[in-house]
Structures are given as C-alpha cells and as structure tokens.
C-alpha cells in the first residue's frame, strides 16, 4: 500500500488522500479549491458556515467535516453549489454590517473575496441591521461585533492554539453572538495581540489597533488574485483530468 491509499474523484478529477484527511484537506493538497469560510487549516473544523458543502455520493456534505473515503464521488464546482454558496455569503452580509468600501479589511477579507469569487453583486435578502456593541476595551485589539460572522475560528484558536478560552458563543438562533471571557470586555481577558485567535478572523471583527493600513488598499491579498488562487496554483498542469474553467 502506498501512503496515499484513498482515491476518489472531484468533478471527475482523480484525487488521492491519506487516511485521516478530510475532503477539504485532500483537495487543498491536490490543488482543487473548495470555497470555505469558517475552515482554517490550523484549526479543528467546526462546520459553522457550510460554504464548503459539496455533493458527496449524491448527498450534501460539508467538506471540512467529511472524512476522505475511498471511491467517493464528489461534486464541487457546479452551478447549483455556486448559487447555494453565494446565497450563504449574501446571508452573512445582511446578517451583520459589512461596509466594504470603508472597511479596514477590504482586500484582505475572506467574506468580501468570496462574494467576488462566487459572483455576488448586491445582496437580495433583507438587511437585519443588528445593534451590537463595539468592544474597544483592549489596548491593542478592537472587537467589532457588527462584523462578526460567527465562524468560531477565534473560539477554536483561543482554546486549542492559545490555551486560553477567551471566546465563546452566547445565545441561540439569530440572536447568537460572540462572547468574551470577562464581564468588562476583551480588555479584561488574557487576550494578547500576538495570539493565534487575533490573526484568524476572516473579516474585520477582530482588528489589531494601529496596524490596519500597513499594507495599503489595492496591494492586499485578494486585490492581487481571487481567493483560492494559492490553492489552485498547487495543481500540476498535467494532461490528466483537464483544468476547470
């Protein structure tokens, strides 16, 4: 048996995986980009956003929490999945307040980048206009709850990587919020700007103070190439399978 004993296909392209890999990890290695938002390669997956949902053997399944299995048939890049994923992105836009033109994260924001990649123009759903409190109690970090998309990355990073448990959820349903481990706000927690939890936020909810415009607009990650391009660059341009358009 070789190291990569698991073989399956994604949109007809052969992919190999090692035991224990998730579908999204195997595809990342193979250079096939599955759009995702809450997933982060350094963190245990939690399946909050569902953007990475694929059709696996005919059933809907989130790629970040689906173990790679031999022989499975995966659909990823289909018009219907793109529509469904774009609808989720739109929903996240209207759930919070995401003013891209003057947001500090513009060009570096995964939500914005996915909106572009998936072809979102303007959201068609109703804006929910939440009224959440901005937490500026920490000397080095701003927590702008209006921009939180409840992806749980900071919760997982703080617990697993930083060993601190600074963050958690509070409430349920549409009233669910990100919560911090102190009544007086983030400034009273053990949070530090160098924590993993401070660097994994996909949007501009957790922002390091006095650092926002080190890289100017126009020169940021997604200003240069669409989100997922780094993963797709790993794919060897061999003759097999054919490149997706």
């Amino acid at each position: 048996m070789t190291a990569k004993a698991i073989q399956f296909t994604v949109d007809g392209i052969a992919v190999a995986a090692t035991a224990g890999q998730s579908l999204i990890e195997a595809c990342d290695d193979a250079g096939i980009y599955i759009p995702r938002l809450c997933h982060h390669p350094d963190l245990t997956p939690s399946g909050n956003c569902r953007v990475c949902t694929c059709t696996v053997n005919g059933r809907q399944s989130a790629a970040c929490v689906t173990p790679a299995a031999h022989g499975m048939v995966v659909e990823n890049d289909t018009p219907r999945l793109t529509d469904d994923r774009r609808t989720i992105i739109e929903m996240l836009f209207v759930e919070g307040i995401h003013p891209c033109p003057y947001c500090v994260a513009s060009g570096d924001c995964e939500l914005q980048a996915l909106g572009y990649r998936l072809g979102m123009t303007a959201p068609t759903e109703a804006y929910l206009w939440p009224r959440r409190k901005l937490d500026a109690t920490h000397p080095d970090i701003t927590l702008d709850h209006d921009r939180c998309i409840l992806c749980s990355r900071c919760i997982r990073a703080s617990r697993m990587e930083d060993g601190k448990t600074v963050f958690g959820f509070e409430g349920r349903g549409i009233a669910m919020r990100l919560n911090v481990d102190a009544q007086g706000g983030l400034g009273e927690t053990q949070m530090a700007a160098i924590d993993k939890a401070a660097s994994v936020c996909p949007v501009a909810c957790i922002v390091i103070k006095r650092d926002s415009y080190r890289v100017p607009n126009g020169e940021r990650r997604f200003d240069k190439a669409p989100i997922g391009s780094d993963i797709e660059a790993r794919r060897r341009p061999s003759g097999s399978g054919g490149h997706r358009s």
């Binding site: 399946g47 909050n48 956003c49 996240l92 409840l150």
Partner: peptide
Amino acid sequence: FVDESCGWCAPCRIGTTQLSL
C-alpha cells in the same frame, strides 16, 4: 423555526429569519 434554530450554522440561522420575513 426562527425561535428554535440553534444558530450554529449560517444557512439555518439566517435563512429561517429570511424565510419568515
């Protein structure tokens, strides 16, 4: 369903509210 959605995943958390609206 708006009242009872757990909120964990985005499509249900936001979708149930949007469907109600």
